[in-house]
Nucleic acid binder design. Sequence first.
RNA 1: GCGUAGGUGGCGGAGCGGUCAAUCGCAACAGACUGUAAAUCUGUCGCCCUAUGGGCUACGAAGGUUCAAAUCCUUCCCUACGCA
Length: 402
Amino acid sequence: MKKFGFKIEKKLKHRLGRVGVLETPHGIIETPSFVIVGTKATVKSLTPEQIKDLGGQVVLGNTYHLYLQPGSKIIKEAGGLHKFMNWDGPIMTDSGGFQVFSLGTAYGKGISKLIKKDSMELFLENKADEEEMPKIATIDSNGVMFRSHLTGDAHYFTPEKSIEIQHDLGADIIFAFDECTSPVESAHYQREALDRTHRWAKSSLEYHKSQKENSDKQALFGIVQGGRFENLRKESAEVLAKMDFEGYGIGGSFEKEDIMTAVKWVNEILPEEKPRHLLGIGEPEDIFGAIENGVDLFDCVAPTRQARNKSLYTSYGKINIGNSKYITDFTPIDAECDCYTCKNYTRSYLAHLFRSKEILADTLATIHNLYFIVNLVKKIRESMLNDTFFEFKDSFLQKYKR
RNA sequence: GCGUAGGUGGCGGAGCGGUCAAUCGCAACAGACUGUAAAUCUGUCGCCCUAUGGGCUACGAAGGUUCAAAUCCUUCCCUACGCA
């Protein structure tokens, strides 16, 4: 019998937010929860023990990356992702849908998940030449042709293929194959892409159900799209809500201000009793907003990537540990933080490790940033249980935003 | 002492008469990063200013040739290697 279930323990008054527990075959996830990104079956620079120690409950791998390297069959042969990477907690895998965007329309243009208003205008002006850009993912109605960013060879992904790979990988929670669209696409294009994503959702689900052995152990989440259009987002939530998914992802590339409105539109429609995952978000302010608007799970590369790029979270906002003023700063990264790094090392030491390009810099910085975010979400959860969410949010953000 | 190769911006190293304040790399300084094309990317990097422009000082030193020199000539100083 399948060991998967979601229980809501408490709801936020007059809001969509809730506290819950998500049960998976590899343990529970107390929601809301920050999902740590480990694209290539590793959280860059950390061991699984370090992930556990900093409070990580669940990690997210990527279908596209693991299919290319080392190959999903090899991971299957190894006994699945859990065994392969030595992580015995819950694992999710993304479907490759984000790569449809990042290697497709976004490729080579320096745009990513969140787009700024001014660069969006620039992008629209240059849209005429866009067709000439050398994308390495091209979409047709049945699937997507990816050219490996590693070797250049072509690989064709269909919804069935994505799910088959995810079955081989063996994560506890897997995602339907979707098309993450760019926020600058026209209503016409978004309409077309959304229909495609819905068809792919159906195919993903049907294929998943047909593989009894896997669908017994793995939960499939459908992904809502629709860009910045209210009618499309709502329609997407309605269409997917009727399909028998065990949870939902909310996807898309946004202009920052659009995120919360889109989340709210969608979560008012999605079935309350199923978990919702906001894909690829976010920064502390986004996390508060997402939770308040009914999101249970979110993943984001920001803490890990930024740690490696010298940007560290503190209670008073982010600092760039590469700045010269930290060379002689013998205080912890964040005096209010209880992570391993803050308890044992100074800003000066981190500054030294980064300047001398020592790999321990990445590890210590990643431990700190992940602890900061994971712990922030835990504190938010507690505040919801104590009915102090709004006070906590205001005091945190006021300080954080200086 | 002789021979050879050299002396260029914090360092390494291009340039070898005009388009040179000087390619490039490193270092330095700052910024960006939101389902990881990412231990990545971008910008600045002689000095000064009324700054998509103008001025000043600069390619070991001092002279010279030329309309014009980091680039050619002379002398000197220094460095490396080789020979005495």
